[in-house]
Simulated scan of single mutants.
Amino acid sequence: MSPIGDRPAIDPLLWLLQISDSALPIGSYSHSWGLETAIQGDRIVSAEQARQYLAGLLHQAIAPQEGAACALAHAYALRHDDRAFIALQAHLTAARWAEEPLKASLDLGQRLHRWAQSTWNLSCPETESLHHCAAFGWLCAEAGVGGADAVRAYLLGSMTNLVSAAVRLIPLGHSCGQQVLAQLHSEIAAVVPNCLAAESGDRLHNFAPLLERDCQAHRHLYTRLFQS
């Protein structure tokens, strides 16, 4: 579809629900972010172990890095601070040393951006690299979505994709997977304030060395269902 001429009226809630849907054609469902390696290594074999693993990733890696970056990008969009947004991309690139998740983050960011441009005439500042979490935050601000809601939606989407991978890999029943996701709601709510309190890109952090190892080892698995 070619870009539409005028920006259509946007209902922020409906827009947020659509952009957060795993059916959005950007390929988020095709990544396990190292979870496939952990499951093949028999370190996650039950729903409870999956819940504990994902809660740890949320608190130690996803929220303080990607969630905070989403919040920062949203704030930069409200201030029309293109320079800070572009600098944020460099921080996010430097924070990922495993090749597969770095490429996945950039691919998802570019696809999300292209979809927003072609469907809604929304765009991010021009930059050589565009990470998914930052694109999500900036575009949410452009669509009129509040910062806290943008972060909640981004984190829930991240957990949803990981639970979906666990359902297919462990495997778990779909109802069991949804129960795991529901149990993570309170964990997500607990980390949102810290994400919103981020002051700059150089304050992003994560501490999940085993995850990085699993991401790096993923390419060497004998069989793989996921791209990362």
Rank of each mutant, 00 (worst) to 15 (best):
H174Y: 15
N161R: 14
V180H: 03
A165H: 06
V151M: 06
G157T: 02
S164Q: 11
I170M: 12
V163F: 04
L155K: 02
D149Y: 14
H185E: 11
S164W: 00
S186F: 10
Y154E: 03
S158K: 04
V167K: 02
Q183L: 11
L156N: 09
V163W: 01
R168P: 01
S158L: 06
A166Y: 02
C176V: 15
A165L: 03
T160L: 05
L184Q: 01
S175I: 14
A148L: 13
H185P: 00
A153L: 08
A165M: 01
A150Y: 05
H185N: 04
A150F: 08
A150K: 11
A153E: 10
S164I: 05
T160F: 06
V180N: 05
S158C: 04
H185G: 02
T160H: 06
Q179K: 08
V167M: 09
S158E: 07
S175A: 13
A166R: 02
V167T: 06
A182R: 12
Y154Q: 13
V163I: 09
G157R: 04
A148V: 11
N161G: 14
L184K: 01
G173M: 09
M159R: 11
C176S: 15
Q178N: 15
H174M: 14
S175Q: 13
V151K: 03
P171E: 10
I170A: 01
R168V: 04
Q183A: 08
V151S: 02
M159D: 00
G173Y: 12
N161D: 02
A153S: 15
